[in-house]
Nucleic acid binder design. Sequence first.
DNA 1: TCCTTATTAGGAACCATTCCTAATTAGCAG
DNA 2: CTGCTAATTAGGAATGGTTCCTAATAAGGA
Lengths: 157, 157
Amino acid sequence: MKLSLEDIQHKFREYGLKSTPQRTAIYHVLIHSTAHPTAEDLFAQVSPAHPMLSLNTVYYTLSVLGTAGLVREVNVGHDRARYDANLTPHHHVICQGCQNIIDVMDPRLDCLASPSGLPHDFEITSYQVAFRGYCGTCRQPQASTTTSPTGNYPASS
Amino acid sequence: MKLSLEDIQHKFREYGLKSTPQRTAIYHVLIHSTAHPTAEDLFAQVSPAHPMLSLNTVYYTLSVLGTAGLVREVNVGHDRARYDANLTPHHHVICQGCQNIIDVMDPRLDCLASPSGLPHDFEITSYQVAFRGYCGTCRQPQASTTTSPTGNYPASS
DNA sequence: TCCTTATTAGGAACCATTCCTAATTAGCAG
DNA sequence: CTGCTAATTAGGAATGGTTCCTAATAAGGA
């Protein structure tokens, strides 16, 4: 289900959002990506077509779309925020080596019992499972494909 | 199972870690807390007994303990890192209002099937379920107990 | 077509975290 | 008990992702 720019403009109107070229382009890149890009990733991918684009606009757009419920933040670590426009329920597998995120759509994970031992007045609205491990290329311990470990502090886990 | 400072020194030696007063105090606070404190929280709680303590030491200590496997980072958002020394398998319930984290220990969540649709060379080492919702006091929409919403960007979700 | 208000771009500010460095101290060997 | 060596500590500076501030621009409705 590829969304054209016109489809996206339509969607924005449905959601009561103004449709601007920048906003459309950013969402277009995000919704057709499975890489869970960072704000900077999006900036880099949209920039060629919009040379005047500012990183600020990317952040602002993401926060507007987030409020509207069209985009979600994905929590991997505390480095930088990564974003996802795939709203169909799914879970994530995170490689501890290269930090890549793989979407997992397994219906068995979408019907978990609500947890026991919870205050009864707590209202749960959603949940997500985060699997962690090592992908094929990062399998050998301490190996990292994209990011070479720099830093004076010992790497946590 | 309250751990005394001596118990902790013992534990550090088992793990081949040097035992310093600061390190012991930080871990002591963390392991007896269920609040998943930030580095600054820990700093504030340990400072009275160690007036010379530096925030840097807290970060360094957390990274050492993290590497040793005694402490884990909890990912809530991309604001600041929160830490947990509770190593027994458990999951988290996060209030979207006050950002508090509640531990959940439900054995049913500890035997999830490994997800389908995963590259076969991916090796999963752990997983965690993060439930999100609103606690009793934050239940009414837009209400927040601890943090009043400041910021010019629309709040994402 | 005009008006109002949101959006944009750019630069400055913020703040959690990390880096750098010298002084201190834990743990070990003698 | 004493001295050695490497890790730890404290403090201050630097980093970098994100947000704030502001004026100019453009979208959508009247």
